[in-house]
Simulated assay, not measured.
Amino acid sequence: MDYAAARTKMVDNQIRTTDVTDHAILRAFLSVPREDFVPDARRPLAYIDGDVALGGGRYLMEPSPFAKLIQLAQIGPGDVVLDVGSGSGYSSAILSQLAGSVVALESDAQLSTAATETLARLDYLNCVVVQSPLEAGYASEAPYDVILFEGAVDAVPSCFFDQLRSGGRLVAVVGTGNAASARLFRKEGETVSDRFAFNCSIRGLPGFESQPDFVF
């Protein structure tokens, strides 16, 4: 299979057509070999217009919504980014092309090991993979200029805003299914504001489900 040609088609047919116009983002998607971040048996599926199963109930996010979320974050070359739920490391590899450094946070031991090996092999040297519960963030490397969630959450835990630098941005898809929306949170001093960006239905991240209220 000609993966380079498939990568170009992904950018032209899936990403450009959904209002992603930032040239640095487009270049990142053209340069990172998505096929290296999926299980060997699924490499031919790496560039499909959909999620790719990574195993253990986890998925590599469909290219179009992922690109739109990155564009919403407005990542600059000096930014420190926390990539929450980095999975096999593909998202962090893309982010590393835009940011100064990336902390790839992953709770799954097998995925974090695979991500560490693949990112090192491909020389994405400004990424570091840390294995830790997703819902707690990663305070030891805070504050972050950008925090990006690689899956939908029912709500953003307050600890993530504590780990965000003043002037920083947090991008998350909040909600479930077709009722979910991409939201941009901004922190100025101790104040956090947010706004709706676009409707976005993606798979949820484990650990961020709302607990049911107690009912008498």
Rank of each mutant, 00 (worst) to 15 (best):
T21I: 13
A24S: 15
L26I: 11
L26F: 06
R27H: 12
A28E: 07
A28N: 11
P33Q: 05
R34S: 00
E35D: 09
E35R: 02
D36A: 11
P39E: 10
A41V: 10
R43Q: 12
R43E: 03
L45M: 05
Y47H: 03
I48F: 01
I48D: 05
D49N: 10
R58P: 08
L60N: 02
L60E: 03
E62L: 03
E62T: 00
S64V: 04
S64R: 11
K68C: 09
I70R: 01
I70F: 09
L72I: 14
L72C: 15
I75E: 12
G76F: 09
P77V: 09
D79V: 03
D79I: 03
D79T: 04
G85M: 06
G87Q: 04
A93E: 10
Q97F: 04
L98D: 09
G100T: 03
G100R: 15
V102L: 09
V102R: 14
V103A: 06
A104T: 05
E106A: 02
S107R: 13
S107E: 15
D108S: 14
L111W: 07
L111Y: 07
S112H: 11
S112K: 10
T113Q: 14
T116I: 06
T116M: 10
L119R: 07
R121N: 12
R121T: 10
L122R: 15
Y124S: 05
L125F: 08
N126W: 05
V128G: 06
V128H: 11
V128L: 10
V129L: 04
E135G: 05
